[in-house]
């Protein structure tokens, strides 16, 4: 399913309980930082600042180290994640076949920079390293599905089609101002 998205816990109290339990389990253990970050992210979907602080404290590490680890591994997210992730591959193969232009066009199309979420929290763009489909470079992944041999125009088409599918499906649940309508501030920094 192309519209498949990550599921989150919604019950805040339950999240808090699970997190407290997690911190307790690892308290005082050496090398607890990575499992704590993974656990925290599994509970909250991403790693908000206060979660980072509590993780660092439980692991007995400075916050700077926790943030360092969390920004080193691509598995960790420091920001809430939009429902759907569009990953532009910037690995070597994709890079030489024009990934930069593709990214640029998709950013324009959604009105956000790589690493940002659309204001409606429906889409996010990420720049990633080789996704293992060099044969069809340049590649864009939408959620778990790879789209290859793209041109900037094709990439925009694919994304637009995906948007139509999503927003059509969710019309009426109140979430869906079309992405890109959120303005283009922050585009030219």
């Amino acid at each position: 399913m192309t519209t498949e998205a990550t599921t989150y816990d919604t019950d805040e109290q339950e999240q808090e309980e699970r997190f407290a339990e997690l911190l307790d389990r690892y308290k005082g253990q050496a090398g607890a930082l990575v499992p704590l970050l993974q656990g925290g992210q599994a509970i909250f979907g991403y790693l908000p600042e206060d979660v980072m602080r509590r993780v660092a404290k439980a692991a007995g590490e400075p916050l700077s180290k926790a943030v360092g680890v969390a920004t080193f591994y691509s598995q960790f997210r420091l920001r809430p994640h939009a429902k759907h992730t569009i990953r532009c591959c910037h690995g070597t193969a994709c890079h030489v076949s024009g990934a930069a232009r593709i990214s640029e066009e998709l950013e324009k199309c959604l009105g956000i920079e790589a690493g940002e979420n659309t204001p409606d929290m429906l889409y996010t763009i990420e720049e990633v390293h080789c996704v293992g489909a060099c044969g069809m470079a340049p590649v864009v992944m939408i959620n778990d599905r790879a789209h290859g041999k793209l041109t900037p125009e094709k990439a925009v088409e694919v994304v637009k089609a995906f948007k139509a599918e999503v927003e059509g499906a969710s019309a009426g649940d109140g979430r869906g101002a079309p992405a890109g309508a959120g303005g283009r501030e922050g585009e030219d920094t």
């Binding site: 980072m52 590490e61 400075p62 916050l63 700077s64 180290k65 926790a66 943030v67 360092g68 920004t71 080193f72 591994y73």
Partner: peptide, 17 residues
């Protein structure tokens, strides 16, 4: 521990959290 690394590879930086 005020300073730490951010990101990896070419994007690495040293800054505060």
């Amino acid at each position: 521990g005020c300073w730490g690394y951010l990101n990896r590879g070419y994007d690495s930086e040293v800054d505060t959290p």
